[in-house]
Design a protein around this nucleic acid. Structure first.
Lengths: 344, 344
DNA sequence: CTGTTAGCGCATTCAC
DNA sequence: GTGAATGCGCTAACAG
C-alpha cells in the first residue's frame, strides 16, 4: 500500500501538504493540487485509517450493539444505521450482545479501544446507572429503544406504555373483554412497560386482565405456540390476544389455527413491531408499528452531531411515534363465541 | 484511557515488558507479572487497537460485505460471521454493497485501509477476474456463495445448479409437468445457475419449460405476487411453481390464494433458501435448504486460518450441501385440475 | 501557501 | 529476564 510519503515524494511536496489537500484545509496553488491528486490516483493511495485514528484521535466509525442482528428487528437496526453511517462516510462496526451484560460491556469497551466514540446501543441488560456513566465517558453514545431520564437527550425511543395501551384500546374497542397477554419473560424495559400499558387500558375501561391470562415466554415464534397451548390446556377463556411482539403473535396464530380456532373470527391477535413478517403471516397480522429503522438512522445522525460539534447542547429527547397498522388478524368480538371458543 | 506507559509506570517496569506479558511472549518473574496484571486491572487498561494495528501491521477485524444485511438471508451471513469472529476475538466490520460494484469495491478498499485482511465477500456484481485479482492482494479474502475456478480454495459455496435441479426433480416426481419458474432478473451467478438446474432436470425427463412460463422479477415478496399475476393474466397453464427464493415463493402463494387457487392442491410451490419465513408462511413452504449461516461461520474460520498461518496451502474448495426441506406447499399433481386451474 | 518537527500508543528489534 | 530505542503512517502545531 502506498503511504502519504510516497504520494508526497511523487508529487514533489511534503506530507503535510498532501494531508492538507486531502482534507481540504487551507488553500494551495492549483498546480500543486493537480500533482498531488495525480499522484494519489497513480499510486492508488488509500490513507491508513489506523494511523489516521492514532494521530488525530478520531475515527470515522459507528459502532452498533444489539442483542442479535440475525433477529429481524435488530437486522433493521443494523441496516438503517449502516446506511446512514455510510452517507456520512463512517464505517460500521457491529457487535451482538446476546442479552448478556458482560458481553455488552466488552463490546462497548472494545469499540472505545478503537477510538470509536459513535456508539448506538440497544441495551436490555445494563442498568440505568451504568448507561449514565457510559454516556458521560462516551460523547457519541446514543441509547436506542430505551428511555433513561438523566440522559434523555441521548435516548431515541418510543413510549412502550403508550403504544401498548393503544393496542389494548384498539382491542377493547372491538368489544373484546377477555383478553390474554403473551408477554416476554424478561423483567426489564419493554416487556414490563408493554404489560403495564395493556393493564392501564383495561383499568381505564373498568376491566382487568386476570393473572392467568398473562403468559410469559421467550419471545420467539415457537414460544407463541407454547403459550397458546398453555392457555388452552388451562381452559382459559379469551377472545383476543395481545402479544409482546410479532413473532409471538405469529406463533399464537399458528397454534390457534392448528386447533381449529379461527383468527380473527374466533380470536383476534395483535402483535408489536410491525416486522416484515406481519405481512407474510396468514391472516396478515395487525401490529403496532415500531419505526426502528428510522430511529436507527436518526440515532446515527445524532451520535455524529454529538461528536462533531464539540459544544453542542441538545435539550431534547428523541421520542418516536408508534401507531396501529390494521390488518386481518383482528376483528370485532363474536358474541356467540365468547364462551364456546375458549373452552375448546 | 490508560496507556501502556501508564501501566508500565504503575508497575515499575518498562513498556516493552508490559507488552510482552500482555502477549505471553518470553518469561518473567512472577512478581513482575503480578504487578503488571494488577496495574492493568486498576487502571482498567485497554490497548488502543489503532496503535496496535499500526505497530504490528495486524488487525483482529473481520469485514463482512453483503448486498444488504437487512435482508433475512444476509442477516444470517452477518450474524453467523460475527459470532465466529467473536469466538476468535476478532471484531466485525459490516458493509452493504447494495448490489453496486463500485460500492462493493469501496467497501473492500476501506476495509483494507484499516489493515483488515479478513474479508468475507458475498458478491453478485464483481467479475471473476476482479475477484481473482483481489484474492491475490488480500490474503484473507473468502468468497461466499459463489464459485470461481481459479480461486476455488477461497470459495465457500453451494452448487446452485445441482440444488435447483434437485428442486425440479422433486416437483417432477410429484407428477407435475407444466411448471412455471419465477427467476430473478439478474444475469449473474445464482439466478442463471438455478434456472439452468431446473431446465436440466426437465430435459433429463424428456420435458422442457416453455419460455412463457419463465418469469423474471426482482426477488421480493411483492415481485412474487406480480409474477403470478402476469402468469395468470397470460392464461398460462401450470400446476407448480419453482421460485428463485423463498420471498418470491411466498408472494406467489399469496397471490394464488387470493385468486382462489389452492396451494398445494391446485398448484405446488417450492422456494429456495429455507429462510425462517418458510415456516411462517401458510401453507408452510417447501424449500431448498441453503446452510448459509454455517457457511458464513466456516468462511470466517477459513479466512482466519489463511491469515494466521502464513504458509498454509489449502488444496480444497469448500462446497456445502443443500437439500429439500419438505413442508406443506407441495403435493402430487391433481390430474383433474391440470387444465382447469390454469386458465382460471 | 508550504515544509519541518514532534508525537499519537504500541510492538519489536537490539543491547545488557 | 528486562530496558532503551526505533518506527508503523498520519495529523497538527509551529515556523517561515
Amino acid at each position: 500500500m502506498a503511504t502519504l510519503q510516497d504520494v508526497a515524494n511523487k508529487a514533489g511536496v511534503s506530507t503535510s501538504t498532501v494531508s492538507r489537500i486531502l482534507h481540504g484545509k487551507g488553500k494551495f496553488t492549483s498546480a500543486v493540487q493537480k500533482n498531488v491528486h495525480q499522484a494519489i490516483k497513480e499510486l492508488n493511495y488509500q490513507p491508513n485509517s489506523n494511523a489516521q485514528a492514532l494521530a488525530s484521535n478520531k475515527v470515522a466509525l459507528v459502532g452498533i450493539i444489539t442483542p442479535n442482528i440475525a433477529a429481524p428487528f435488530y437486522g433493521r437496526v443494523a441496516s438503517g444505521g449502516a446506511a446512514t453511517a455510510r452517507e456520512h462516510q463512517y464505517k460500521t462496526l457491529i457487535a451482538n450482545s446476546f442479552r448478556d451484560a458482560e458481553d455488552e460491556l466488552n463490546a462497548i469497551y472494545s469499540f472505545v479501544a478503537q477510538g470509536c466514540r459513535n456508539i448506538i446501543l440497544h441495551s436490555m441488560t445494563l442498568s440505568d446507572e451504568k448507561l449514565i456513566e457510559l454516556a458521560r465517558q462516551i460523547k457519541g453514545l446514543v441509547i436506542l429503544g430505551r428511555y433513561v431520564e438523566k440522559i434523555a437527550n441521548r435516548c431515541v425511543w418510543i413510549d412502550n406504555v403508550k403504544a401498548s395501551k393503544l393496542a389494548a384500546e384498539y382491542i377493547l374497542q372491538k368489544g373484546h373483554k377477555k383478553v390474554a397477554v403473551l408477554s416476554y419473560a424478561q423483567t426489564q424495559c419493554d416487556p414490563s412497560q408493554r404489560l403495564t400499558g395493556a393493564k392501564l387500558a383495561f383499568m381505564e375501561a373498568g376491566l382487568e386482565i386476570p393473572e392467568d391470562l398473562i403468559i410469559f415466554n421467550d419471545g420467539q415464534v415457537a414460544d407463541g405456540r407454547l403459550s397458546v397451548q398453555k392457555l388452552l390446556d388451562n381452559k382459559a377463556e379469551f377472545t383476543a390476544i395481545i402479544a409482546y411482539n410479532d413473532l409471538i403473535a405469529i406463533g399464537a396464530i399458528k397454534e390457534l389455527v392448528k386447533r381449529g380456532i379461527k383468527v380473527p373470527q374466533d380470536v383476534s391477535v395483535i402483535g408489536f413491531d410491525n416486522l416484515f413478517l406481519a405481512e407474510i403471516s396468514t391472516p396478515e397480522l395487525t401490529s403496532v408499528n415500531y419505526p426502528i429503522e428510522e430511529m436507527s438512522r436518526y440515532a446515527v445522525e445524532l451520535s455524529i452531531r454529538l461528536t462533531e460539534q464539540p459544544n453542542i447542547h441538545i435539550e431534547q429527547t428523541h421520542l418516536f411515534i408508534s401507531s396501529i397498522v390494521e390488518r386481518d388478524s383482528t376483528a370485532d368480538v363474536n358474541q356467540n363465541l365468547v364462551a364456546a371458543v375458549v373452552t375448546s
